[in-house]
Write a protein that binds this DNA or RNA. Structure first.
Lengths: 233, 233
DNA sequence: TTAACAGCTTGTCTGACAAGCAGCCAGGAG
DNA sequence: CTCCTGGCTGCTTGTCAGACAAGCTGTTAA
């Protein structure tokens, strides 16, 4: 029976946990600036470097802002980045988990079909992605097409209304993105493939516009899984 | 057009990113010790405190070990904690309201139903979880029951064969676990609820044994979503 | 074989300095 | 007299260097 497991924890981690609970408790109001590092160090009775390490942990968890640019602005309590941090963590875990690509694709097919089934209308953002893709087909610009492709699927995913669904789809998409770009770059005639993908996207949107959600979901299934099977016609 | 957005990033974050890609690339072998902080500082040309902040970020992401206890052992490249880090990050997003609980539960329902549909047989590990739960019901031991409950669902999820599916279900389960425990602790008559949950688990196993996978999936849907709707009978 | 010792590593603190930003104050233009 | 502008002074973050305690490890002497 360890009497005080807390004492075996580095001070910086202990401070990080206490700050974390303080933030989640509302002791530090959302969107409010945190005290300065020196003030935090004094109030916790530790050195500034210890406070800095604790702040880094909280920034990695997305609970406070200010990790990405150098500025004199103090960190703020923010909740916007928590989903991003969760996405990064999930993406990392999937990457290092040596999960077969086929499993990732199968999961994505399942989720996107469900998201499309929940869709009632095609969001304007998804339509503009279609336009971007069409322009990219003209120029045979693989990267622009791919970026718009990703955005299109994510927009559709979130349009269903379930944020967890859109979130996981986005993460899966990130994990698969590398494979997809490589596949596109390896194709002999990228233009033809891009045109076919664009047509499939258009088909999904058309089906949704016609109110045929089940058909749209079916099209999406074939659109996604078709790309990852070697026998792409 | 920003010429060098990288230069506006704190050094410690830049170092963290470079270390991260080095780990994911396999430059540092899995389960191998990282160089010492002093060596890293020299090889990156930065001070030791900068390296330490970068290491804290990677530890928060679950990519390297050694964040929880104080010891002289050097951090190792480890992949075991990434799932836990993802669960924690998602849980944070949930607590903060970035992702509604109802959405997560809906997603979990969808995924678990699919996993059960892919099941051909009930794994022995899941059966032993049932036995553990039965014993916990006798003792009204909420925590033991809960642990076995979690394990049961994860075992079923992985039994379907899709590792991505099992993994994501595990992460979702991690992140919802807190709410579930709170709910169990708040119930007036925990024994009755535990008994009902156990019976529902048994029903799913029975349906799978009988080869009625669709029925089993349906039972799982009601089992999970029923628990999170206030009108639990 | 055992016990002391030296070296290394992490965790932490302190002090220092550059860069950027906000606020204030004085002085000149109108 | 009012207003604008320029510079100055703090303050805060990011980073570095040096120091020391505690714990582990390998070596050496008894």
């Amino acid at each position: 029976m360890t009497i005080s497991p807390v004492s075996r924890m580095p001070l910086s981690l202990d401070v990080a946990q206490r700050l974390r609970t303080a933030i989640l408790d509302g002791t530090f109001a959302a969107d409010a600036e945190l005290p300065t590092e020196t003030e935090l160090a004094q109030s916790f009775g530790v050195g500034r470097s210890t406070i800095r390490e604790a702040l880094r942990v909280l920034q990695a968890h997305g609970l406070i802002s200010g990790a990405d640019t150098v500025s004199t602005a103090r960190p703020r309590v923010t909740h916007e980045r928590t989903a991003g941090a969760a996405g990064l963590a999930l993406s990392t875990a999937l990457q290092v988990g040596a999960i077969p690509l086929a499993d990732l694709v199968a999961l994505r097919v399942l989720l996107e079909a469900e998201a499309i089934r929940q869709n009632t209308s095609v969001p304007a953002t998804a339509r503009s992605c279609l336009a971007t893709m069409a322009a990219a087909v003209e120029n045979a610009d693989i990267h622009t097409f791919h970026a718009a492709d990703v955005d299109f699927h994510v927009q559709l995913a979130y349009a269903g209304g379930n944020r967890a669904l859109g979130f996981v789809i986005g993460v899966l998409r990130d994990c698969i993105a590398g494979y997809l770009l490589d596949a596109l770059a390896a194709v002999a005639d990228p233009g033809a493939v891009l045109a076919r993908l664009l047509a499939e996207h258009q088909g999904i949107v058309d089906a949704l516009d016609a109110g045929e959600t089940d058909h749209a979901a079916e099209l999406a299934v074939h659109h996604i899984s078709g790309f990852y099977t070697p026998e792409t016609p």
